[in-house]
Structures are given as structure tokens and as C-alpha cells.
């Protein structure tokens, strides 16, 4: 369990550097020539104030008064938060801030003590997880959930929605779904290619490394063709070279119009790719804003960023 999380800390020093360089490169490219999606997102969020709970012009997800406590611990206490459609929104915060719990709640994997939330205009409060996923909000897990004794290809193919062969009555009648199955397989193969997993295609997913599982899980989530994808630490344990291409994929998704919400601890990554950042601490949203706003936010620096050497140097404050 904890092995997955531990991996990034065990990366050799030079790999970390390599990664930092690549991310910087990415940021530079971004700065010089922002992609179409990035500039669209920037325009949409231009007039939005950088304060917690601020309304967005075109929110795809609206959460109100969401609370969940475990025994005495108030894991999530979000008064109001909105996610703008077509953006990459990062959720950051120290360990135990309630980010994963927040994900669990809005995707129906945990039941809140109170709260309502709307997705794409529809109130989906209390809907079962599978229906939320089916309606286009798909999440990945911080602790990856590879389907061990299914092959990599089967893992990804499972993600496709509306498969005729998934009904008990049509399942034995192969001719009814063979054509669709071929299409699904092609799409899955393309995704595997994109995430550099083709060599694992026919292996059991259980034989994969922690990083490969992260990739697999993302590929599988994309197979659903979500309109909002929620990624819980998608980069943890993924090697530097792939990190960059993952960043590329995530931006590509945004450019194609998919909304991305991601949790990530690597501030360089966050600053490089996100259009909007939500900062959580002790269950609450303590700040929101564009990367530049966050970098300057006193509360955030105290609660979270203050511990990061590079950023202090960057800003020259504090």
C-alpha cells in the first residue's frame, strides 16, 4: 500500500534533477506559446477574483457545504467551490488536508455528512458512484487499483461505456457485439500506445510496477471519455521522462475540452500546467487563484508552500 507513495521519495538525485529540468522546459514552452486550451482557460478565468469559494463563469462542478468527519477529525468542510469547465484545476494542500476525501465524496465513493453538489447542471448529490462515473465524472485513485488478474488491454477496454456485450442477455451472442468490441480494442490500443504501455498489452496488470499502474489507471479513466476527470496524484511514482509526456497528455485533454481536476504535491508541475489552483488545509478551502496568485498568497505560504525551499527563493518573499 504505502509502497506506491514511497516511490517518489526514493528517486535517485539525478532523476529528480532531470525531472525538474523537463518541467522547467515545459513551463518555458507554456509561457512562450500557451496552447489554445490554455489561453481559452486563461481568458475565461481572467475576471475571477482569487478568493476561496469564488463563483466561476461556466462551472462544470459546483459543491456546497460539503462536510465529512471521521470520528473527531473533520476531514472535509468545504463551504463552496466551483470548477470552471475546460480548465486544469489543481487541488493542493498538505498531507491529510482532505483532498482525497473530497474526491471520494464528489464522485460518490463516500457519503458526506452534509452537502450538495451539481455536475454539468444536474444535482448529483447522493448518486451512486457508478452513475456519477457514467454521467462523465471519472476519477482515479491515489492508491492505484489495477485489476490484477485482467490483462493490461482488458483493463483499458473495461473503461469503454455503452458496450452492448456487457448485458447478460446479449453477452453469449458474440455476433451482436463483435464489431463494437473491435472498435473498443482499437481505441484501447491507441491509449496504450499513448501511455507507452503497449509492451505490457497482454500481461496481467498485477505484474506492473507502481508507476505503470498509475499510467494504466489514467488510460482506463480516459477510455470512459469523461467530461471531467479527477486525477489523484497521477504523477506519483512515474519516471521523469514520462512525467513530461503525462503533462502533455493532461494539457492535451484540456485542449480537447475535457475538464481536469488533479491533486499533486509537486509544486513545479502544478505551477507549470494548472489554470486554477484550489488550496486545502484541514478540510477547508483556504485559497483559490491562478498560479501567480497562489505563489503570493500569505496564507498558502504559511500553511503549505512555506516549507518549499525553491519557491521561497523564487519569490524572494518571507
Amino acid at each position: 500500500m504505502s509502497a506506491d507513495q514511497a516511490t517518489p521519495r526514493e528517486e535517485p538525485e539525478d532523476l529528480v534533477h532531470q525531472r525538474a529540468e523537463l518541467v522547467e522546459e515545459e513551463a518555458r514552452l507554456q509561457h512562450e506559446a500557451p496552447s489554445e486550451g490554455a489561453s481559452r482557460a486563461a481568458r475565461a478565468l481572467a475576471d475571477v477574483a482569487a478568493e476561496p469559494g469564488v463563483p466561476k463563469p461556466d462551472p462544470i462542478l459546483v459543491v456546497e457545504d460539503l462536510t465529512r468527519s471521521f470520528g473527531g477529525v473533520k476531514a472535509v468542510q468545504v463551504d463552496h467551490v466551483e470548477v470552471q469547465r475546460g480548465t486544469i484545476t489543481a487541488v493542493i494542500g498538505p498531507n491529510g488536508a482532505g483532498k482525497s476525501t473530497f474526491f471520494n465524496l464528489v464522485t460518490g465513493f463516500d457519503r458526506p455528512d452534509s452537502g450538495r453538489w451539481r455536475f454539468d447542471g444536474a444535482d448529483i448529490t447522493g448518486r451512486p458512484a457508478y452513475r456519477i462515473a457514467g454521467s462523465g465524472m471519472v476519477r482515479t485513485f491515489q492508491l492505484t487499483k489495477a485489476l490484477m488478474r485482467l490483462t493490461t488491454l482488458e483493463n483499458v477496454m473495461l473503461g469503454a461505456t455503452g458496450q452492448r456485450g456487457e448485458r447478460l442477455l446479449t453477452a453469449p451472442l458474440r455476433f451482436l457485439w463483435r464489431g463494437q468490441e473491435d472498435q473498443v480494442r482499437q481505441r484501447a490500443d491507441a491509449l496504450l500506445e499513448r501511455f507507452r504501455l503497449t509492451h505490457m498489452r497482454d500481461e496481467f496488470a498485477g505484474t506492473m510496477s507502481g508507476g505503470q499502474r498509475k499510467l494504466l489507471e489514467m488510460a482506463r479513466a480516459l477510455m470512459v471519455r469523461p467530461s471531467l476527470v479527477m486525477l489523484d496524484e497521477p504523477m506519483a511514482g512515474v519516471n521523469p521522462a514520462l512525467t513530461q509526456s503525462l503533462l502533455g497528455h493532461i494539457q492535451g485533454l484540456r485542449d480537447e475540452g475535457t475538464t481536469v481536476v488533479l491533486v499533486e504535491h509537486d509544486m513545479d508541475v502544478i505551477m507549470a500546467i494548472s489554470d486554477w489552483i484550489v488550496v486545502m488545509a484541514e478540510g477547508r478551502v483556504i485559497a483559490e487563484g491562478r498560479p501567480d496568485d497562489i505563489r503570493r498568497n500569505k496564507a498558502v505560504i504559511d500553511a503549505y508552500l512555506g516549507t518549499r525551499r525553491e519557491l521561497k527563493e523564487d519569490d524572494g518573499e518571507h
Binding site: K145, E154, N155, L158, P172, W177
Partner: peptide
């Protein structure tokens, strides 16, 4: 044999491996 080698069987086996994962992909576990 027919069922298990169909997409239906794939979902079934995914439920065996990890219910939550199957749910997160929109399957009514």
C-alpha cells in the same frame, strides 16, 4: 465459457479484482 469471454465476463472479473475500480468506470457493480 461464452459469458466469461464476453465484455460481460470482463466486468464480472473486474468486480472480482476490485469493486471500487469497476465502479469508478461506471459499472453497476
Amino acid at each position: 465459457a461464452l459469458l466469461i469471454h464476453s465484455p460481460w465476463g470482463r466486468v464480472l472479473r473486474s468486480v472480482r479484482e476490485d469493486e471500487q475500480a469497476a465502479r469508478s468506470l461506471g459499472k453497476n457493480v
